[in-house]
Structures are given as C-alpha cells and as structure tokens.
Amino acid sequence: MIDGQKIKDTRKKLGISQQELAQGITTQGTVSLLERNSTSPRGDILAKIIARLNLKLEDVVVDNEVLTAQRYLDEADKLSMNNQYEQALASLKKIEKLTDKEQEAHYLFIKTNAIMWQTRDFEDALFGFNRILQMRNKQDDVFTVLATCELGVVYLERGELDKASFYFEQVPNLLTNINLDDNVFWSLFIWKSLTTYYYRMKDFDKCAEILTKAEEFSNRHLTPVFVDSLYYTNALVLHDKSGKWTKEAIGYLLKSWSFATFSDNKRNIKKTSDILTEIGYLPK
C-alpha cells in the first residue's frame, strides 16, 4: 500500500500545493485521494509524483495497521455521506487498533456522528464531540473544526439556538486555520452543516454565500460529495426568499434529485422526490 501521509508531509515540506504536484501528471483530485490513502494510481503516475517529491518507491510503499485503519475510516466516511450509519459503524468495528492520534479523532468523530443520527441521542453526542476537542487540545486542525461545528448541530437539533450560534459562529474563523484543498471531504461536510444552520436561522443571504462558495469549491475539485444536500438547501433558500417554486429553485431541486439518485442517498432522494411530485415534476 501507498503511505499517503508521507507524500502529503513531503509535499508540504517542499512548500508546493496539491495542484502544483499534480501539474502535468494527473489531477489535483487524484493527489488528494492519494494523500488520504483512498486510491492507488497507475504505476507511471505514482512514479512521476514520487520523482517530483525527490522520494524513492520504498519511501512510500508500506503495509501496516495505520494504513489498514485509514482504509476502513475512509470507507466509513463514504457510508456516512449517504446516511448509511449502520454500515459506517460496521466498518469502524473492523479496525483492530488505533495508534495514530489523528485517526483516533477521525474514528471518534465518525462514530459519534453516526450514532447521533441513528439514535437521535444528542446527549451522548455532546460528550463525544467535546471529547474530540479535549483530545485535539485546541490544535488548529480539521477535527477541531468538525467537533465545534457538530456541537452547533447538536444544539440546533435540541432547539437551543443561542448555544448553537455560539459554536457555529466560531467555525468560519476556525476554517481559516486549515488548508481547505487538503480537506475536500471535510470542508464540504462543514459547509453543509453551516448552510443548514443559516437556513434554519433564516439568514438566507449568508446561507446563499456559503452555498455559492461550496459549489465553486466542489466544481474545482470535481467531486460530487454532499452536492445533493447543498443543491437541496439552495432550492429551499430560493423558494423561501421568493415564496414560491421559481424556475431557478426547481432547477436546483432537480439537480439535487439527480445527484442523490447518482450517489444512492435514499434520504435525499425521498425529500426531493416528495417536493417534485407535489409540484408536478414527477408522476404521483
């Protein structure tokens, strides 16, 4: 297996971006997946990337428990993305041992988030997300941002809007401390939660601003991750601002339905299908 963390650490040490590393070799998205141990590129591509980083093959080819754990963590990420929480938890159970501190935070985040939505037990979720903040000890990393954001989600679901705002309003500043391009999946996850918050607070302008940023970011990275959810929220914002289903709002609703169908996100398929059926775009 390829040690994506070694590639990532070397790239950062050399001060080059994922896009610069990929230039003339492959796509930035492939480099991002490689660094997260989510893909094994063709041998010629890997050879060129390694050469550009002044590394040897033996420097990045490993087979150990860290990479095995990462494979299951990435699997759980993808399942959680489509609200398949039971399957995500099953993937986490395959992990026998965690020795990497970042992986420990990753594991706890996925587990806490999955159980929260599966059981609606928000009290335990508060404990889990606060535990991540203690583990990271105020480090400027993506799991600090994720835990802070999801504490806002918990309080939003509990109807405690002042507490929800306390956490959500910290998130934009926290995001400036991480490299969004190195955390494509999580950046879109966080923006999805933020847009839900601003929509629920009826701050449609702020919601639309983040939706535009997320859509541009998604297009730049050529990823469909959470696109169905973002398009759905965009459709709701346009509907609520105008008080009716405009052509533009319906367009986003249709795009949300299409992406949800493509990714087999059953929850979003149902939500968009119900509205499209009600307004006559799908047969009853």
Results as ranks from 00 to 15, higher is better:
Ile178Asp: 12
Gln28Asn: 06
Leu156Phe: 01
Ser218Met: 07
Val154Arg: 02
Arg267Lys: 07
Asn179Met: 08
Glu35Asn: 03
Ile25Met: 08
Ile16His: 14
Met1Arg: 03
Lys213Ile: 03
Met135Arg: 03
His221Arg: 10
Leu89Asp: 08
Ala88Val: 13
Ile45His: 05
Asp162Ile: 05
Lys270Arg: 14
Arg200Thr: 06
Gln18Phe: 02
Glu65Asp: 12
Ser40Pro: 05
Leu282Lys: 06
Ala90Lys: 10
Leu21Phe: 00
Gly280Lys: 06
Leu33Asp: 06
Pro41Lys: 10
Val142Cys: 05
Glu20Tyr: 09
Val171Cys: 03
Asp203Glu: 10
Thr272His: 02
Glu160Ser: 14
Leu108Gln: 09
Leu14Arg: 07
Phe143Ala: 12
Ile50Pro: 10
Leu21Gln: 00
Ile178Lys: 04
Arg131His: 05
His221Val: 08
Arg220Tyr: 15
Leu238Val: 00
Ile50His: 07
Thr26Ile: 02
Ala51His: 10
Met135His: 09
Leu161Pro: 10
Leu98Ala: 08
Asp274Trp: 04
Lys163Phe: 15
Thr277Ser: 14
Ala114Asn: 13
Glu102His: 00
Lys8Phe: 11
Ala114Cys: 15
Ser165Trp: 10
Ile2Asp: 07
Ala90Glu: 15
Lys101Phe: 11
Thr212Ala: 04
Ala22Leu: 03
Thr10Phe: 00
Gly243Ser: 12
Ile269Ser: 06
